[in-house]
Amino acid sequence: MGATAIVVLRLRSLFAVVMLSGIYSFLAASMFVALDAVDVAFTEAAVGAGISTVLMLATLALTGSRERIPVHTPPLPLLVVLVTGAALIYATFDMPAFGDPAAPANLHVAPRYLGDSGHEIGIPNVVTSVLASYRGYDTLGEVTVIFTAGVAVMLLLGGRRGQDAGRKRGDDDAGDAV
């Protein structure tokens, strides 16, 4: 995965970069499966390797497929990135060990979800009952945000086409009148 990312950074042919990012998504999906996070891997493969490859290719059809060679390689951003990364890695030393049953996240509400959600909510899948019932308002908010984004995209894309169609029709009418 690291090698793929480095090659993506070094290549200038954007088509090859799109291909390699698809490969990167597949590798990340295999890694998630190996870490036993099958649902995350599924999302990664569907969105990363499937949809976003197609979307990036559609963008390439509108723009050029070569990247300009950057004129400067400033060392200051590299320094900032290195310091931030080091700080984040240092922060992970304070985290509880992976899968630690005494971690705070596993002690607060998780036992109640695991133990009682079956007869409190009546859904056999714990994740579903958490998302749809315990955090119902949260999920409602997320659905509202996604719906708003979808409406905005449809307005942006569909509205322009409607205007174009109207103008064309107007031209046709004018031609008929002449």
Partner: peptide
């Protein structure tokens, strides 16, 4: 997913 992706790429 792989099949659809490759078909899309080749079409492009």
């Amino acid at each position: 997913i792989n099949f659809i992706g490759v078909v899309a790429v080749l079409k492009f």
